[in-house]
Each structure stands twice: as C-alpha cells, then as structure tokens.
C-alpha cells in the first residue's frame, strides 16, 4: 500500500477549516472588524477539499 500524501494534507486542512469555521460562527471574535476564524476556516476547508478531490481523481 502506498500512502498518497494528498489524503493526509486534505484531511488535516479540512478538519482544521471546519473547526475554525464553527468556532467563528459560534463565538464572534472580530479582529479589525473581521470574523477571521470564520473566513479563514472556510478558506482552509475549500483548500482541504480540493486536495482530497485531487487524491481521489488520481486513484480512479
């Protein structure tokens, strides 16, 4: 079995992204008027899912 590195990368970024986004949605801690947890969590989730998509596409 060869472990495709895109899986752990995608999984880690998605996990972090979702946790941050939830934190941002629940506790609205604004920095310079921005809900940074929410926005950055969403961005990380998108990147994480993209890595997972690339890993899956390679396999099939």
């Amino acid at each position: 079995m060869h472990l495709d590195l895109r899986y752990p990368i995608g999984l880690l970024l998605t996990t972090y992204g979702v946790i941050l986004a939830i934190q941002g949605a629940v506790v609205e801690a604004k920095v310079l008027g921005l809900n940074v947890n929410l926005y950055w969590g969403a961005a990380m989730t998108v990147c994480g899912l993209a890595a997972l998509y690339l890993a899956r596409r390679k396999r099939s």
Binding site: L20, Q23, G24, V27, A29, V31, V36, N37
Partner: peptide, 10 residues
C-alpha cells in the same frame, strides 16, 4: 495580538 482563540491554535 491578532489571533483570536482558534486561529491562535493554528
């Protein structure tokens, strides 16, 4: 200074 709980952990 700039990171709230959550981002600070990251």
């Amino acid at each position: 200074r700039y990171y709230p709980a959550g981002l600070l952990g990251l």
